[in-house]
Amino acid sequence: PPDDERKKAEKAARSGNEEKAREILERLGYSEDEARELAKRLR
């Protein structure tokens, strides 16, 4: 489910793995720019 994926992205971002967070968010349908912004904010 998307919620689980989003949680994974948050966890990745918090542990400093912004790249992985961005990949997950892009898979969820965010654009590259949106995903980058979100990954930064989740950190």
Rank of each mutant, 00 (worst) to 15 (best):
E34G: 03
Y30E: 00
S15M: 15
E5A: 10
E19T: 12
E34C: 10
K11E: 15
A13N: 03
A21S: 05
E26Y: 00
L28Y: 02
E34M: 08
S31R: 02
E18R: 03
E32N: 02
A39T: 03
K40N: 12
D4Q: 12
S15W: 06
P1D: 15
S31A: 05
A9V: 06
E37C: 08
K11N: 12
L28D: 01
D33V: 08
R22I: 14
E10T: 11
R22S: 04
R43Y: 14
I24L: 08
R6D: 03
K20W: 11
K8P: 05
R36P: 01
R36Y: 12
N17K: 06
A35D: 02
R14E: 07
D33F: 06
R14M: 11
E19A: 15
Y30Q: 00
E19N: 11
R41Q: 13
P1L: 14
Y30M: 11
R6E: 08
L25K: 00
P2Y: 14
A39F: 00
I24G: 00
R27L: 11
L28V: 01
D4W: 13
A13M: 06
S15C: 11
G16Q: 05
I24P: 01
N17R: 07
E23L: 09
D33W: 04
K11R: 15
L25A: 01
D4I: 14
E23F: 00
E32I: 03
N17Y: 09
L42I: 12
L38A: 05
E23A: 11
D4N: 11
E37P: 00
K20E: 14
A35H: 01
K20I: 11
D3L: 13
I24W: 03
G29Q: 00
A21K: 01
L28K: 00
A21P: 02
I24Y: 05
R41I: 09
E23K: 12
E23T: 09
E37A: 07
K11L: 14
L38I: 15
E34D: 11
D33I: 09
K11A: 15
Y30F: 12
E10Q: 11
R43P: 06
K8D: 11
K40V: 06
L25T: 00
G16S: 05
A39C: 10
L38V: 07
D33R: 05
D3V: 10
E32Q: 07
D33T: 10
S15H: 11
K40W: 02
D4V: 13
E32V: 06
E5F: 09
P2C: 15
N17V: 03
L38T: 07
P1T: 15
D3N: 12
I24R: 02
S15I: 08
R27G: 12
A35K: 03
L42S: 04
R41L: 10
R6I: 15
L42K: 02
E5L: 15
E26N: 04
A35R: 00
D4K: 12
S31K: 06
R36M: 09
S31D: 07
G29R: 00
D4H: 10
P1K: 14
E18K: 02
N17I: 05
A35Y: 03
R27V: 05
E34H: 04
A13D: 06
A21E: 02
L25M: 03
P1V: 13
E32R: 02
R27Q: 10
S31Y: 00
E10M: 09
P2L: 13
R14N: 07
A39L: 09
S15R: 11
R43K: 12
D3M: 13
P2M: 14
R43I: 12
R6M: 15
L38Q: 03
R41F: 06
K11M: 14
L42W: 15
A21C: 12
R36I: 10
E37I: 08
E32P: 14
A35N: 04
K11Y: 03
L42E: 04
E5M: 13
A13E: 03
D3P: 12
E37T: 03
D33S: 12
A12E: 12
P2N: 14
E18A: 08
K8R: 12
K11Q: 14
E32L: 01
L25P: 00
K8F: 10
E34T: 05
R36Q: 08
S31N: 10
A9R: 03
A39M: 03
E26L: 12
G29P: 00
K20N: 05
A39H: 02
E32T: 06
G16D: 07
K7C: 14
K11I: 15
K40E: 15
K20T: 10
E23P: 02
A13P: 03
A9N: 02
E10L: 09
